[in-house]
Amino acid sequence: MIITDTHTHLYSDQFSEDRDEMIQRAIDAGVTRLFIPAVDSTFFDAMLDLEKAFPDHTFLMMGLHPTHVKENAAEELAFVKKWLDKRNFYAVGEIGIDLYWDKTLLKQQQQAFKTQIHWAKEKNLPIIIHCRDAFDEIFEILEEEKDDKLFGIFHCFSGNLEQAKKAISYNMKLGIGGVVTFKNGKIDQFLNEIAIEHIVLETDAPYLAPTPFRGKRNESSFIINVLEKLADIYKLTPQEIAEITTQNSKNVFGI
């Protein structure tokens, strides 16, 4: 059974003491495809180290995370563009808009999001969208940018049914992680109304650990709990969920 974690921050400092063992636990559990989003330039060397250590299992993205759009955004975006032109990546991400922490940089986040969408289109790459308290703002930009080159994943989807359908209308898969196992997560109440062909699995490790690990450090092996929850929701076997969602990820990332 091949399981794909489409979003895992394996370079996080939270894994500094047991990173290799944590990754091996995931591989041993069948989670053999690990897609690693970028945040900003300060983590890039660590991402390259991961790729070197686990070349058959780790797949890198490149992008500037919306909460890292600061005063040096132009410099950070230049770094993203330099590396997109220099080597292959599997997606532009994670990118988007986050208004949970700070609303004062909305215009800068919007511009960074649009710029990186354009780069993704130039490279024929998917985008990985980070959206927090910003569905309307994200959808406004996707509406402007929609065409046959716009596609990707709505990472850590936690919206309602209407928002799920709207995200899918822009050729986005829904990244489903630990939130689907939460009692107050709500997405489990309507997810069976979304065709499984629109779903990919993710952990967002070390964040958002699924039940029964909620509140603890998340890791990619815990995606098994997400997979089992989806098997219950869709009335399919875990094997079937793994196969379908991995194929969905292949359709997005091209591998």
Rank of each mutant, 00 (worst) to 15 (best):
L99N: 00
L99R: 00
A112P: 00
A134D: 15
K86Q: 10
V92F: 14
L84W: 07
Q111F: 11
W119M: 07
K114V: 06
D102L: 00
L106K: 04
I138Y: 07
Q108N: 13
K103E: 15
E143I: 09
E140K: 15
R87K: 10
E137Y: 02
V92C: 10
Y90C: 12
F113G: 03
N124S: 15
D133Q: 07
L106P: 00
W101D: 14
G93F: 14
A112Y: 02
Q109R: 04
F79R: 14
A78Y: 15
A134N: 03
Y100F: 14
T104N: 08
L106G: 04
W119Y: 11
A112G: 03
K114Y: 15
L84Y: 09
F139T: 08
L84V: 07
D98Q: 02
R87N: 05
F89S: 04
E122A: 12
I97E: 14
F139W: 10
K81W: 04
Y100R: 06
Q110E: 13
E143G: 09
Q111Y: 15
E137M: 01
Q110R: 08
Q109D: 13
I117K: 00
I129P: 09
Y90T: 05
D85H: 10
G96S: 05
T104V: 07
W119P: 01
Q111V: 10
W119E: 13
D133E: 14
E143P: 15
I138V: 10
A120C: 07
P126H: 14
R87L: 03
K121I: 14
E94F: 13
I127W: 12
C131N: 14
A78M: 09
D98Y: 03
Q116G: 01
F139Q: 02
G96K: 01
D98G: 05
Q108V: 09
T115I: 05
Q116R: 13
W101V: 04
I138D: 06
Q111M: 12
E140Q: 15
V92L: 05
Q108I: 02
R132Y: 13
D136Q: 11
L99E: 13
D136I: 11
V92K: 12
